[in-house]
Computed example of a mutant assay.
Amino acid sequence: MEIRLATSSDAHDIHSIILDAYSEYKDIPGSSSALDETADSIQESIKLGKENALLGLVDRSVIACVRYSFKDGMYFYRLAVRRDWQGKGLAKLLLSHLESLAMVERQPKIWCKVRYSVPRNVYLYQSLGYVKSDEELVHKDDGVALEVWTMSKVFSA
């Protein structure tokens, strides 16, 4: 898999991957807010420098992405792999690249938020050395309360 930094012109690909990867959550109570984003909002955020993204490509096709910003270290979110490519280790490759970038940028830690109710995501991060550093109860507009963990990896100086 080739990994490269996204530009604002990649927003439609990013949006498409997120919709595909997060589609399994669309019919469950408290569905992900990722499904409410638009390609335009992603494009604007990248263009204004509010966030960055890495893309994973196979044979020039974008099949994975992760978005990130610098906030108390490197905060990443919307890690997504097209459903037909999941389970092949691509998320781990993308995270490895992101961690290397965090170290180059001299960030003290890398972290994300994950729903506790999606154990495969919790296990993914745990398998890569992330630990639960906080938890919170998030109340969604539809009245659903979700337990959300902050998972982080601290880099030694």
Rank of each mutant, 00 (worst) to 15 (best):
Q107D: 03
D142M: 07
S69K: 11
F155A: 07
E44C: 10
Q86L: 11
A80I: 03
E136P: 03
V58Y: 14
A39R: 11
S133P: 03
K153L: 03
M1T: 15
W85Y: 15
V81T: 15
D84I: 06
L57Q: 11
I46T: 02
S133V: 07
A145S: 14
L98D: 01
M74Y: 01
S9N: 13
S100L: 09
A80H: 09
L94H: 02
Y25T: 04
Q126E: 15
Y75H: 09
V104A: 13
V131Y: 11
V122Y: 00
L124Y: 11
I63K: 07
R82E: 09
F76W: 05
L95P: 02
S33C: 12
V122M: 05
K113P: 06
S41P: 11
G129S: 14
Y125F: 14
F76G: 05
V66S: 08
Y116A: 11
L101W: 05
R60M: 13
G87F: 10
W149N: 02
R67S: 02
H12E: 14
V58C: 09
E136A: 09
V104K: 15
K140D: 10
K71E: 05
L54Y: 10
R78T: 08
P119R: 11
D72R: 06
V154A: 12
K26N: 04
A11M: 04
D84R: 12
G87C: 13
P108T: 02
S33R: 13
V104C: 08
L57C: 14
Y125I: 06
R106C: 03
M151S: 02
K47T: 14
S96A: 08
H97D: 10
P29V: 08
N52T: 01
V144E: 06
D84T: 13
W149C: 04
G143S: 13
S16A: 15
G129I: 10
M74H: 03
S127A: 12
R120T: 14
L95D: 04
A102W: 01
K47D: 13
S96Y: 07
S61K: 15
T150W: 00
F76L: 03
D36L: 12
K50D: 06
L93H: 14
L137H: 07
V122T: 10
G56Q: 04
I63Q: 02
N121G: 04
D10I: 09
C65E: 01
L128E: 03
E147Y: 02
S33M: 11
H139C: 12
L128T: 01
Y68V: 01
Q107K: 05
G89F: 10
S127C: 09
Y22P: 10
K71A: 04
E24A: 09
E44G: 12
S69H: 07
R82I: 08
G89V: 12
S100K: 10
N121F: 05
Y68D: 07
A80R: 00
I46G: 02
K47I: 08
I18G: 01
E24R: 14
A53R: 00
D40P: 00
Q86N: 13
S23Q: 09
A102S: 06
L94P: 03
N52Q: 11
